[in-house]
């Protein structure tokens, strides 16, 4: 297998502008199958813009994303979970079923095989008993699992999670991270996880992408922690904060 085949997606000189403001510029990275990447950066640094550009939700002003040879399925868990209407009358099964629509042709119908797949993913994430419950009536942690199930139900090769643990308390947050690590280890699903939790992500992700409108660092945690260049960039304390628990 050559290096080209190993890439599941490659960002080539990716830039995005909102009006005249450059949100991100010139980001070039190659993501391999099975990577678990923590995406970190200050507020407004372009982390969400970067993944939205990858998902095709915002147009690129320059550069391109090159996906692997076959069509790559991407699961997505958006940032604004709390912005979803808690009064929306959707059952857990109905919400998970949305994740299967990408594979359907018109008219997109959910069949019995799909229902079995929904049961399977609900069971895998420990929410099988909640299937008929209204999503709005669940706790934050349970809702997050439902949305993760929606992102995973069509067996994506890549899953992108945008600050999924923001609204969760520390105990549930750790459970969620463990769930992702298990998923990554067992199914080789590539994970891109945006987080503010820079001090903790090193315990779970294997690679580290630091963006501050441009690429600051991309590589393994060991490389990051040993990099003198990064010590110079962050100062010794910030680098230690990120690396201490790794």
């Amino acid at each position: 297998m050559n290096s080209e085949e190993e890439k599941i997606v490659e960002a080539v000189n990716v830039s995005v502008k909102y009006g005249q403001t450059e949100a991100i510029s010139g980001i070039t990275i190659a993501i391999k199958p099975g990577d678990y990447i923590g995406i970190v950066g200050p507020n407004g640094s372009g982390k969400t813009t970067f993944v939205k550009a990858m998902l095709g939700l915002v147009p690129l002003s320059e550069g391109k994303f090159v996906f692997g040879v076959k069509p790559v399925k991407i699961g997505y868990l958006p940032q604004r979970t709390s912005a979803l209407d808690p009064k929306f009358p959707a059952s857990v099964s109905e919400v998970i079923s949305h994740g299967l629509l990408s594979e359907k042709k018109f008219p997109r119908r959910i069949n019995s095989a799909d229902k079995r797949r929904i049961d399977e993913i609900a069971s895998m994430l420990g929410i099988e008993t909640l299937k008929n419950r209204n999503v709005g009536s669940l706790s934050g942690g349970q809702q997050q699992r439902v949305l993760l199930a929606r992102a995973l139900v069509n067996k994506p090769e890549i899953i992108i999670l945008d600050e999924p643990t923001n609204a969760l308390d520390p105990h549930i947050r750790e459970n969620f991270y463990e769930l992702l690590s298990k998923l990554n280890a067992e199914t080789q699903t590539t994970i891109l996880l945006i987080t503010h939790d820079a001090g903790n992500i090193g315990n779970h992700a294997r690679k580290f992408l630091y963006i501050d409108r441009k690429l600051i660092f991309f590589g393994s945690f060991n490389e990051f922690c040993a990099s003198c260049e990064m010590t110079e960039y962050f100062g010794p304390y910030a680098q230690h904060y990120i690396c201490k628990r790794h």
Binding site: L55, L57, Y76, P78, F88, A90, H98, L101, R150
Partner: peptide, 13 residues
Amino acid sequence: FSISYDEEFAEVN
């Protein structure tokens, strides 16, 4: 239904 619940996710899908 999907767009009503989460327009952004529907678009990604």
